[in-house]
Simulated assay, not measured.
Amino acid sequence: MTSSELTVGDLIDLLSGCNRNAPVRQAMNPFFPMAHRLAQVVQSVDETSQTVVYLAEGSDDDAQLGHLPPEVAIALTWQGPVQAPPRRPRRRAGGN
């Protein structure tokens, strides 16, 4: 396993500081960030005979919850903070 992969132990450590009653969601697709409801945890073996745990979204029609909140996409560095462009002075009738 490469060291860049998050392990079950890492995930447990990260989750231990979270509210235990909070729903778990999965953020997907950095180019079109969406939130998905998680429904299953499945343990399997990959092609190298290594045990792998998969977090899967639900199969219900409402498993995709919609767009990811902008602050989450920013925290994941999937998008940068967006600021409104500076306002231009209004033009007046007559070209002044």
Score class of each variant (00 low, 15 high):
Met1Lys: 11
Thr2Pro: 12
Thr2Asn: 14
Glu5Pro: 00
Thr7Gly: 03
Thr7Glu: 09
Gly9Val: 09
Ile12Lys: 15
Ile12Met: 06
Leu14Ile: 01
Leu15His: 07
Gly17Tyr: 07
Gly17Arg: 05
Asn21Glu: 13
Asn21Trp: 01
Pro23Tyr: 04
Pro23Thr: 04
Pro23Cys: 06
Gln26Arg: 14
Ala27Asn: 05
Met28Lys: 13
Asn29Ser: 10
Pro33Ala: 05
Pro33Gly: 03
Met34Asp: 08
Arg37His: 03
Arg37Gln: 08
Arg37Ser: 07
Leu38Glu: 04
Ala39Leu: 07
Gln40Cys: 01
Gln40Leu: 05
Val41Gln: 02
Val42Phe: 07
Val45Leu: 02
Val45Ile: 10
Asp46Cys: 03
Glu47Val: 04
Glu47Asn: 03
Thr48Asn: 15
Thr48Cys: 09
Thr48Val: 08
Ser49Thr: 10
Gln50Arg: 14
Thr51Asn: 07
Val53Gln: 05
Val53Glu: 00
Tyr54Gly: 10
Glu57Asn: 10
Gly58Cys: 06
Ser59Trp: 08
Asp60Phe: 09
Asp60Val: 09
Asp61Lys: 02
Ala63Glu: 14
Gln64Gly: 09
Leu65Met: 13
Gly66Pro: 04
Gly66Cys: 09
His67Ala: 08
Leu68Ile: 11
Pro70Val: 08
Val72Cys: 09
Ala73Phe: 08
Ile74His: 04
Ala75Trp: 04
Thr77Asp: 15
Gln79Arg: 14
Gly80Ile: 00
Gly80Tyr: 07
Pro81Lys: 15
Val82Ser: 12
Pro85Cys: 07
Pro85Met: 11
Arg90Asn: 05
Ala93Thr: 02
Ala93Cys: 01
Gly94His: 06
Gly94Gln: 10
